[in-house]
Computed example of a mutant assay.
Amino acid sequence: MALIEAHGLTKVFRLADKSPGLAGSLRHLIRPRYQEHAAVRDVDLRIEAGEAVAYVGPNGAGKSTTVKLLSGIVVPTAGEVLVAGCVPHRQRRANARRIGVLFGQRSQLWWDLPVRDSLELLRDIYGVPERLYRAQLDKFDASFALGELLPVMARKLSLGQRMRADLAAALLHDPAVLYLDEPTIGLDITTKDQVRTMLRRLCEQGTTILLTTHDLADIEDLCQRIVIIDAGSIVFDGPIATIKDLLATDRTVHFALAGAAPPDLVRSLPGVRASQGGSSRHLSITFDRLMFTAGQVTKAVAAQADIVDMWIDEPRIEDVVRRIYARDYELR
């Protein structure tokens, strides 16, 4: 059995349907009307132990609602979900001991307490043994300098500092499943690298991670699998390499030439786009891999110029996500 399993998971919210203004409010009070909105519909999801899965989609697609369903915060309208053998909304205490949750816009810290006191409260809530608690603090300090934040009041933390402290709070009880919503928001480059390194190590040790983020470097650095949700339904679930091939077919080959690039260098390859960098000896050719191969492009350039060096830019997940957000795709 997979660590996370969802079948036909659906959540429908009932929203008030009223006209604006005081008159609309009074009419709604006397004769209320509602509309139903399916935030998540018929989601099937299976995640094995130790997987790091990116869960992405446009704003309002249903990402946060799915995480809330998996964590037991929201009760599903229909469907089934199991997390480490527990039904999250029915076995909330047992489920809470198995999961860690970090919402970028929410905090587990007590606003008027030092970070150390918040972590000690969480230690007592989860029943974390003292030896494990100390070991966890040492690990967090080595990974993202948590020690300097321990005496600071939570309300005085910057966004980046709060994210570091909240990450420690989510990981304190050594959960089997980790739900991360924008885990590196507000962090500097060095701390981001340290956090990603620690998350990769957690995966190697068997922790399962479900990641929603707009930091595309997080996805490429941590995940091998991507799940795309749109309008409440999953439209793709598979390897990142596969989705790149589906939605990012452009490749760019860069050439360093012995001399200036002759005009119409790739006239034998209709549809390709040629551009020069800061030097006339640098040439970049962008092509659709479904129409031409890198070998064909290289052969066309080599027929008219002396190539000194070359390298290829592979598509980035950023290009894929941009198309998803623009709804410029055909996956169904």
Rank of each mutant, 00 (worst) to 15 (best):
R162K: 08
W110C: 04
A96K: 14
V177G: 05
K192A: 04
E130K: 14
A96L: 08
L187P: 04
G85I: 02
L82R: 15
A84D: 15
Q91H: 15
V81F: 14
G104F: 10
L199P: 06
P88F: 14
E148N: 11
A154Q: 10
D138N: 11
K192P: 05
Q108M: 09
A169C: 09
L121F: 11
N95E: 05
M163L: 04
C86E: 10
P76A: 11
V195N: 08
D141N: 14
R90S: 06
Q91V: 09
L146M: 15
L137A: 04
R155C: 06
R200D: 00
V87S: 11
L70G: 10
T184F: 12
H89M: 12
Q194M: 03
K139V: 00
D181A: 02
A94L: 12
G100E: 05
M198Y: 15
T190K: 14
L121K: 03
I73H: 09
L167Q: 03
L113E: 14
L171Q: 07
Q108T: 03
Y126P: 04
D166T: 04
G186T: 05
T190G: 13
V75W: 00
L157K: 04
K192L: 02
G147P: 07
R98P: 00
V115A: 00
L159W: 00
R162S: 12
W110Q: 07
V115I: 02
A165I: 02
V101W: 01
A78S: 15
L70C: 04
K139D: 09
L70A: 09
